[in-house]
Design a binder for these strands. Structure first.
Length: 207
DNA sequence: TGCCAGGCCGGGT
DNA sequence: ACCCGGCATGGC
């Protein structure tokens, strides 16, 4: 039995990413850095209630951003990061995710990584969940789960783990979406308790 | 009450 | 190439 099937049978579809538009997903990807999603929701809610969930409005009122996103934590730092992203997005793409469509995924990834405060996980979350590109998102839970089950010798090399998934799975946005969400779900439910993924199937050497 | 969340960066070894 | 501290709020 493959890990994906074990997870899907146990938890069902996760329906990620929570967010009503590509832009909302992008904002959430930055705000959720090392932060509980509940707190991010409060921050996004503040932005929505202020009627400012648009790249141009946020950029035109950037002095209001710190207070709006305060519940998401690290709010001064994240304000800088969000503004850096907004400037890139508005200046180069007019704040319209449709304008990314001509770009190939690799160069888009490089562009995102060149923005201060956007690292590999944030970039890949934007690529997969906002722009529907087939990029596997690796996070702290993924590393812990893989290393705990000894599916990869070294942990904490982001690129190595990403390629491990991408080279052993069909290149499917839908699958990558669900798989990463399921790993996070498993991590939240079980990682802290140090429980194995599946007691009845010790040999789940396939993804 | 204390610990920690869907990271990233910069400085030190 | 690793390792560490800083960044900050809110929930359990």
């Amino acid at each position: 039995m493959k890990i994906y099937n074990i997870l899907f049978e146990r938890f069902g579809p996760q329906n990620w990413w929570p967010g009503e538009s590509p832009f909302e997903v992008m904002v959430g990807a930055i705000l959720t850095q090392n932060t509980n999603w509940q707190n991010v929701e409060k921050a996004i809610d503040n932005i929505k209630k202020a009627g400012m969930l648009s790249p141009h409005k946020l950029l035109e009122n950037k002095e209001r951003i710190p207070q709006l996103i305060r519940p998401s934590g690290f709010y001064k730092l994240k304000s800088k990061r969000l503004i850096a992203f907004l400037e890139y997005f508005v200046h180069n793409y007019d704040g319209d995710a449709e304008n990314f469509s001509g770009k190939n995924t690799d160069s888009l990834r490089r562009e995102l990584l060149s923005i201060a405060g956007i690292g590999p996980e944030t970039a890949d979350s934007i690529l997969l969940y906002a722009l529907n590109r087939p990029v596997f998102v690796v996070d702290a839970y993924t590393c812990r789960i893989l290393s705990r089950h000894k599916l990869i010798s070294r942990n904490k090399d982001y690129e190595e783990i990403r390629k491990f998934f991408e080279e052993n799975l069909p290149r499917s946005v839908r699958l990558y979406n669900e798989y990463h969400a399921l790993l996070v779900k498993l991590g939240k439910e079980y990682c802290k308790k140090n429980e194995p993924l599946c007691n009845t199937c010790p040999l789940y050497n396939t993804l």
